[in-house]
Design a protein around this nucleic acid. Sequence first.
DNA 1: GGAGTTTTCGTACACTGTACTATAATCTCG
DNA 2: CGAGATTATAGTACAGTGTACGAAAACTCC
Lengths: 220, 220
Amino acid sequence: MGRPKKKRGGKPVLTLDHIVETALGMADEQGIEQLSMRKLATELGAGVMSLYHYVADKDTLVEALVDRVASEVELETTGDWTAAARQLAVATHEALLRHPWAIPEWSTVWPGPYRFALTEQLLEVLAGAQLPPDVADLGFHALTNHIQGFARQRVAYGDTRTDTEEMRNRVKGLLTQGDYPRVAEHVRYHVDGHSNHDEFGYVLDLILDGLARSKADCQQ
Amino acid sequence: MGRPKKKRGGKPVLTLDHIVETALGMADEQGIEQLSMRKLATELGAGVMSLYHYVADKDTLVEALVDRVASEVELETTGDWTAAARQLAVATHEALLRHPWAIPEWSTVWPGPYRFALTEQLLEVLAGAQLPPDVADLGFHALTNHIQGFARQRVAYGDTRTDTEEMRNRVKGLLTQGDYPRVAEHVRYHVDGHSNHDEFGYVLDLILDGLARSKADCQQ
DNA sequence: GGAGTTTTCGTACACTGTACTATAATCTCG
DNA sequence: CGAGATTATAGTACAGTGTACGAAAACTCC
């Protein structure tokens, strides 16, 4: 059986881009915990150690993956600073929901260039708003916390996209058993009525309105 | 050499509590990534598989660990609802800073009984505030996002407690290189002036004030 | 052609979680 | 007291992980 030996040397057949892109696909499908160097190499039709010519570590590969997610956020914005901040927030939120595995990494991993550019852009927008410095700072953290916190919650407690059988059972148990009535009430509040509404955008606007108001207060 | 064979059977020498407590100590010292079943067993002077008589999984052990952290939060509160919410938030924040490894797990792992009780308590406090339902919901998420987000940031970007050499170098590089001027400015803002202030409490009060105000608005 | 460089990869090692099985100490019941 | 059941403790083994080391193949350049 003439199984050809794997090629060695010469013109590169792998690319960092190709590696990252494939890894991204695998992480999207199976979660990042299931992503191993070996599986990734096999998927690429390469040997494991070949990857290490392009990537120092598994950790730095993950950093690259997260930055790849950050790269999906469109930085161009239109309108005044509230509109711009809103666009950035929504785009980031959507990128995170597209790659749920990235949400816990997002705040753990050291940022790559795209992530830094995104942060820079949001800070730039807030700077353009001419808010008092401490309000701008508060606003920045409120926005980023909202983005991350909201995405985390949707993934942790049952977005339709990421539901598992086990999770649904746990939620059901929480609702039927009588312990923690307030928690149950809270869960029902979300499950029942308000999932239709765009909760993320709603709270986002509350934050932005608050910032705008505190600017107006200041200028009077 | 009369090394005594390890005892088998009979009266239990291990306890779930003992296991969890030891694991907690190890996680606090070396981080949760360094915590392995084998190391934990060795620390306990036991065989690896003995642990599995008390714990189904490593994952459920981690769940227990996180709930152990949640158990450190004092649920008794004093004063009106803003004071009570403040106490819960501060106590949770402090517990998380005491066990930084737990921060990413906090929002990933399914809550245990202590964590549920804590959530229940915060919801109860907010319910007692007689806020409009949507404001109460918003407030709950604003508070929890603030708690988690703030803790995460302190750990990710250099609290004095968790600094590593590498991280300090990265931050220094960020500040000296000219890329991302707004980010650098933002970092300096935090490093320079405001670390003395109790930023966590400051923003916390802003949130609570906002909630109180929106209640007052509603009652007029 | 030969030397040097670049890219690929096989092997090996230390480490992980844990399934399966064996074993010893204790408890229960006669 | 003795025999059997129960329970807590472990040893071994296996599949899987990240990656250090070194070898080998294909390319470039003289």
